[in-house]
């Protein structure tokens, strides 16, 4: 298969491009997304949420081309044999590219790693992890104007489908290249420069650029609903190529109407404990951390192994 732009051999298909033209195609797509949706400006003080995987390392590299001195932030959930590996890649990448990296852990902030929390509650780890990670990212990003995340087209397609299956259009209304419905000083806006890049394109880019990315799978991923949706969408994509792209193109057209509709219904209540946004008196983070602390104290008091 030849590159559609020159006579060189293609290294990627759909679109069929050689190494040089694929890198240009990917970087242009990110640049166009940033410009079209005004995701970043030169005045922005940016923090990039990083896991150390292909998406966050690619987005960190590209953001550094657009804004001055972005800072990388990583949350160490404490998942043995998983997060430690990706954080090593991230440390190495930041060192090579002279990017300041800040790492915060569940162990230090909540008093226990995710592995330990899993043993203490009946909840699936992905629920705890999603809630706590979002909370900590927001907490440690207050001094910045925007949080950049590495969410790609596949992530967004999965979220849209999951929300449809939960009959929760309000959460979908918060999606898009820039997340959220209203400006609220308690939240740092999140932007997704890889919004129109597929997962396959992103890993091809990171491989062709020679980024240090090790494949690792979270040991809890099989418990996650998202993984089931991901596999279903990929099966359908194999039968109907272009399906995920069409889904996102359709969604982005309806998104302004969805945001307008749900804007008026957004809660501005505060959690009585931490002051964060919450529909209830106590937010999910405070509720979960209290439950975990109580169970931990109970087990320690009764000499139970955790």
């Amino acid at each position: 298969m030849k590159c559609s732009k020159c006579s060189d051999k293609a290294v990627f298909q759909n679109p069929n491009l050689c190494k040089k033209h694929f890198i240009a195609y990917f970087e242009n797509k990110v640049k166009n997304t940033i410009k079209k949706y005004k995701l970043l400006t030169k005045k922005d003080k940016i923090v990039v949420a990083c896991s150390g995987g292909k998406d966050s390392i690619s987005v960190l590299y590209l953001v550094k081309k657009f804004v001055k001195d972005p800072v990388a932030i990583a949350i160490d959930e404490g998942i043995k044999g998983y997060r430690s590996k990706t954080l090593e890649d991230l440390k190495e990448f930041c060192k090579q590219n002279k990017i300041k990296l800040k790492i915060y852990s569940y162990e230090d902030y909540f008093g226990a790693s995710l592995d330990k929390m899993k043993k203490l509650t009946h909840l699936i780890p992905c629920t705890i992890c999603g809630t706590f990670r979002r909370y900590m990212l927001n907490k440690y990003s207050k001094e910045y104007t925007k949080i950049v995340t590495g969410h790609n087209l596949d992530d967004e397609a999965q979220s849209i489908f999951m929300n449809l299956l939960k009959n929760n259009l309000e959460i979908s209304a918060r999606l898009g290249p820039e997340t959220g419905l209203i400006k609220d000083k308690r939240f740092t806006p999140r932007v997704k420069p890889l919004y129109f890049c597929t997962e396959k394109e992103t890993i091809a880019y990171s491989l062709l650029m020679g980024f240090p990315v090790t494949y690792t799978e979270c040991p809890y991923s099989s418990l996650s609903h998202r993984m089931f949706i991901r596999d279903s969408l990929n099966s359908y994509e194999n039968k109907r190529p272009g399906f995920k792209q069409t889904l996102i193109d359709g969604f982005i057209k309806t998104l302004p109407k969805l945001k307008k509709h749900f804007k008026t219904k957004v809660t501005t209540n505060s959690c009585e404990e931490c002051g964060g946004v919450s529909d209830n008196k106590i937010c999910m983070t405070c509720k979960l951390s209290k439950e975990i602390k109580n169970k931990s104290l109970y087990k320690n008091k009764h000499n139970l192994n955790t």
Binding site: M1, A10, V11, F12, Q13, N16, K19, S51, G53, K54, D55, Y82, D154, D155, E199, K200, T202, I203, A204, L207, L208, Y215, T216, E217, C218, S221, R230, D231, N234
Partner: peptide, 28 residues
């Protein structure tokens, strides 16, 4: 990849080739 170079689905493989099948789905 074949010998660490990305290749497309139409490429004909030979018995002596060294092939890696890399996962692109996120692991977490």
């Amino acid at each position: 990849t074949r010998s660490n170079e990305l290749i497309t689905d139409d490429i004909r493989l030979k018995d002596k080739d060294n092939i890696k099948i890399l996962s692109v789905v996120s692991g977490g």
